[in-house]
Design a protein around this nucleic acid. Structure first.
Lengths: 339, 339
DNA sequence: GCAATGTTTGCATAGGTATTCAAGCCCAAT
DNA sequence: ATTGGGCTTGAATACCTATGCAAACATTGC
């Protein structure tokens, strides 16, 4: 017996019909306790387990969720993926992973590949999708959730943190700290997440009548962020505070400031990040940052996916979850702000 | 037309048989150029794509590789996963991810779940498998590769770096640096990888007639490693060098030494890690470490998986790939060792 | 004891594709 | 002109499971 046993094998062994075996392994089907016991005994004896592919083919439910992610450098994503995977496993779903590579090429091709697997849903993280693909997904009636990215006007479900509110909070914090040359190193211009953080930050400054001293793009990338930091400090009027659009870049900026340029943080320049990745709490950085509530973002993502799968007509939701400002030592702390 | 089109739909539209459509989408099948053109035209018109589930059901090849991983905290794994995913996509395979959670519970159950999906292969990373499961996989003739873990005597394919050689190299390096109270913070005792690193390290010391000054387990975990570092420094005769079994822990040890205990690195204590994760190169740590050649480990893993899939009778291989010692600033550098 | 429910079971079929087999075609060689 | 061989093609079947339907059975109430 070298082949995997099938439900018919079990049926023969137990002296019942194949349907009976199927029903025993289908929750909620009608089977007598006696039958269940006999079938399970035979199944165990033969080492039978239902074939998920065949099951998916006939039910139209593969219980697979596709996850598309560009890069895993930014420690925010491994953390999120681990939580996503755990939450989905709890519901009997599993993650099929697709990476687009840094070059950002062919993300459309990749999504095509995913659809071939008849995934029950799709999660896009740190990925921008084309309008064309969006349409195809809608036509295929495949639930789609953007994670940590928004696409306003697309009518897609998206879950993010309160990026605008967060940006504004950081502006208020830096202003309260008495900074008057506040700069920003932003993310990738094509990402709504990055635009929202900048927008909120800008609004916060505007409300206080303070200017944004300087603004350079960081592309969500360590090298570019370091570059930007150097450029900022090279100016005749270097900033006294920098809000960096995510922690991954903020850590690079701190490294560059301290070890490359010999600038003291926070004494000469305050640095604030966004995400609160695990490393932000490490004493070598002790980074003040706005926490993304990953756990809750994940829960909402999974929940939304499940309701979309349950009721395909369910409305798409755009959920923002505000996170707290985590005050540590990388930025001057205003009076009374000891969060 | 709300349902996904099938090969029969395309066949009807093109006025040919379903078999013809199938052949057009099966590489290496016999089709005339004329037929291929007509079918592709119809397929594009209808938006047809082959159903991977149905295809997998009949061919017995799902083109899915299961990946089981315990945790993603250690940045070595996200990096490896990204590379694995890319390499596999190149071959037309994709990763189905399973996380066992930190509690290490039910890794057997999880693997059972995977097998239901008829995966063509299995990669276990940072995971120890029970003998029972090993047998089941062998019976199911499912290719299995241990990544960054070995299981001597199991007859399983495993790819690791040269852990013993690496441990020995580090011993030689520390001895050459004139250290005479050399300690070790090890990984998890159940992991062969950890045992090999210790073994090589011990051998290296023995050969020079030097003692292992102290040895505490770190469980591949930041908290435990910090604990261990504190315990070591608390002794009446604290070490002047610590080899930590991986970078993830080594960074925690450095943090604890510097910020918690006020110990200067490397002036008072040298620290050496293992892996060369991206963060080891960051100036805040500048960690001397033994590099695991991830790229090549991944390539070998994928290659071995492919040959096992191709020829199930292929012998299992135990591959070790030596990596270089990357000399940075966290440990005293002996004369002439500037790598 | 009988009709009327309610529960369990088996039969047959569907779901979308790959592949064997035989039939059909075309062209070259004799 | 005929035979042979090489390509293409279509019909039929298999892969493994879930489920609608009808038959068989057990249960209840009178």
């Amino acid at each position: 017996m070298t082949k995997k046993p099938t439900s018919s094998d079990v049926a023969r062994h137990a002296g019942v019909s194949q349907s009976a075996v199927s029903r025993v392994f289908t929750p909620g089907a009608s089977v007598s306790p006696d039958m269940a016991k006999r079938v399970r005994a035979s199944a165990d004896a033969l080492g039978y387990r239902p074939n998920a592919l065949a099951r998916g083919l006939i039910t139209g439910r593969s219980r697979i969720i596709g996850l598309v992610v560009a890069y895993l450098d930014n420690p925010f994503y491994p953390d999120a993926i681990e939580k996503l995977s755990n939450a989905l496993q709890q519901q009997g779903y599993h993650l099929l992973i697709f990476t687009t590579g840094k070059h950002g090429i062919d993300t459309d091709t990749v999504i095509q590949d995913i659809l071939d697997y008849q995934v029950d849903g799709l999660i896009l993280a740190s990925i921008t999708i084309t309008a064309d693909l969006t349409k195809r997904c809608a036509e295929a009636r495949i639930p789609l959730v953007l994670f940590n990215r928004g696409l306003p006007g697309s009518g897609l479900s998206a879950v993010t943190s309160g990026n605008q509110a967060g940006g504004r909070r950081i502006a208020e914090f830096l202003l309260a700290g008495g900074h008057d040359r506040i700069a920003h190193i932003s993310g990738f211009d094509g990402a709504q997440t990055a635009r929202d953080r900048l927008r909120g930050f800008q609004d916060g400054l505007d409300d206080a009548g303070a200017p944004l001293h300087a603004h350079l793009p960081g592309k969500f990338d360590r090298a570019t962020a370091s570059e930007a930091a150097r450029a900022l400090m090279d100016r005749p009027d270097p900033p006294d505070a920098i809000f960096v659009a995510n922690d991954h870049m903020a850590l690079a900026v701190m490294d560059t400031l301290r070890h490359d340029l010999g600038v003291r943080v926070p004494d000469e320049v305050s640095v604030v990040g966004y995400d609160d990745v695990p490393m932000a709490a490490w004493p070598a950085y002790d980074l003040t940052t706005l926490r993304q509530p990953t756990r809750r973002m994940v829960d909402v993502t999974v929940e939304d996916l499940m309701t979309q799968i349950e009721t395909p007509a369910a409305p798409r939701r755009r959920v923002e979850i505000d996170g707290p400002l985590v005050i540590r030592g990388s930025a001057r702390i205003p009076e009374g702000w000891t969060s």
